[in-house]
Simulated assay, not measured.
Amino acid sequence: MEFPFGTSVYRLRAEAKVDPYDPDSTIPADWDHPDVLEIPNAFIAQSSTSMTKAESREQALEAKSLFCDGAFDIRKGDRIRNGPPGAPTYTIDGIPPAADTNPFTGWSPPREIPLNRYVG
Rank of each mutant, 00 (worst) to 15 (best):
A99C: 10
A14I: 01
D78S: 02
S108M: 15
P96H: 04
G6P: 10
E58N: 06
T49R: 13
P85Y: 03
F67R: 04
S8G: 02
F104D: 10
A14V: 07
Q59G: 01
N116I: 12
E112W: 00
A98G: 15
R13L: 03
N102R: 01
D22F: 12
A63K: 14
T91A: 13
E112I: 13
S50A: 11
G70T: 05
D32M: 09
E62W: 11
P84M: 01
P34Y: 00
P114I: 02
V36Y: 02
Y90I: 10
D19N: 15
T49V: 11
I74N: 03
R111P: 05
E38L: 09
G83R: 02
S48Q: 13
S65W: 07
D78L: 08
A14N: 05
R57Q: 09
P85N: 07
R13W: 03
P88I: 06
G106Q: 02
M1L: 13
L61N: 09
Y21W: 11
V9A: 06
Q59T: 14
R11I: 13
D30G: 09
I113S: 04
Y21T: 07
G94M: 05
V36W: 00
I80S: 02
G86A: 07
G106P: 08
A45Q: 12
I44Y: 07
F43I: 06
A14Y: 00
T49K: 13
G6E: 08
P4W: 01
L37E: 13
G70A: 08
K17P: 00
I74K: 03
A98D: 12
P40I: 03
